[in-house]
Design a protein around this nucleic acid. Structure first.
Lengths: 219, 219
DNA sequence: CGGCCGAGTGAACGATCGTTTAGAATTCTG
DNA sequence: CAGAATTCTAAACGATCGTTCACTCGGCCG
């Protein structure tokens, strides 16, 4: 008899197969039989181990969340989220299933995806707060909203990886979507944007400020 | 007998029903019978009019693209894309089906979504070029990549609308996702970011520049 | 008026879906 | 070694899927 937490078993193979297929073709686009075939077992065994297809999805969710939060190896539980993502991006071939599944989890809007997004925003907000305190960042007029914007911007390479990869032409070694070249090419312009902005002056900003104030004239 | 271009017919009602359901539950999550029920017809009639479910999806794609590109009403065909989006955002309740479908079209990565994204990037690139020429924007070090970044940033409220709406707490009148309040709240911080950036100085930027140069020391 | 064609429907078909069941094979346990 | 528990499979079940078929109904044209 194997303990519940034991991995590298048939049970774990099924979960990994489900994770890869869910990430590649979506939940509805993946059949239990396809998962079973990829794991080299029968369809009935998949149900036997996880109870239902939905429960299997939940197992994949928690597995990914555990992996991204790194609860297993280190109890740091601190802002290592960015580090984890960075590590994933440098080894795109290995972690592509995880990245694809993660993107779909966020887009599908399930409970786990919501929790993940909210945590990401919270951490981003804390990061910006710390940056302002340390003097390396400017204080935004609306911290929460700015955190949402920065967080979503960070998710974009994940969610739209295929489009970005295609638009930047880098059909790299890791198939369609992001390649290491594309990630590298994104780095400088992104930092440029976050350092100098895009507009030459603040005329657009003050125009918008004026337009919004005239709509809500205040007490 | 009705002409092929005639709308407001049963055929158009079926397409609108499909558009709404595809946008709400996805292609795989929508059955032909559900579309038929929403349109008030039989499932067989849906197939009779469009040949297959896939062909119906294609019809929805072209309908949305026609609507967003505005080919019907005006032949301007110029940078009205931003105007269209702005008009949609001010009437979220009416255009929510279109917005939902559009978001799904882009993340699903079909041919129509690819074409749409590529056009968006091209127009963004042209817009930045013009902005630089007019002196209202700074010249980016990598125009194409910056266009991709700005374009994808603009798509984020569409793709992650539910997350953004939830994170900003504005459970408005138009259901979950974006509300007019949320859109308004996003305006100023976004322009702030595009005007002043987020970092207080260019230390992060120059550090990244140095790191990238040391990896590719040149010939 | 008679023939015809498109709109529209209800029933059914074959395929596939997630899941269940019965049982064989294997492993652990007393 | 006997027995219990676990792992795993083949087969089938009921539901639902997209699609087809046979058919009716109502205008239109010669």
């Amino acid at each position: 008899m194997r303990s519940a937490g034991d991995d590298l078993t048939t049970r774990a193979r099924i979960r990994d197969a489900a994770l890869a297929l869910f990430g590649a073709h979506g939940f509805d686009g993946t059949s239990v039989r396809a998962i079973a075939a990829r794991a080299g077992v029968s369809a009935a065994l998949v149900i036997h181990h996880y109870g239902s297809k939905d429960a299997l999805r939940t197992a994949c969710d928690t597995a990914i969340v555990d992996e991204i939060m790194g609860r297993k190896k280190s109890m740091l539980a601190e802002g290592d989220l960015a580090t984890t993502m960075q590590r994933w991006l440098t080894d795109l071939v290995t972690f592509r299933p995880s990245l694809d599944y993660l993107a779909r989890m966020i887009i599908d809007g399930g409970d786990a995806g919501q929790a993940l997004f909210d945590q990401l925003v919270d951490r981003t907000e804390a990061m910006i707060s710390q940056g302002v305190e340390d003097g390396v960042m400017k204080a935004p007029s609306d911290l929460r909203t700015t955190a949402v914007i920065v967080a979503t911007h960070g998710l974009m390479p994940l969610v739209l990886e295929r489009h970005i990869g295609r638009a930047l032409g880098g059909l790299g070694l890791s198939g369609p979507g992001l390649s290491l070249d594309v990630v590298r090419r994104l780095t400088l312009p992104t930092l440029e944007l976050y350092t100098h902005g895009l507009y030459a002056d603040d005329s657009a900003l003050s125009a918008a400020r004026a337009a919004l104030q005239e709509r809500t004239p205040g007490p």
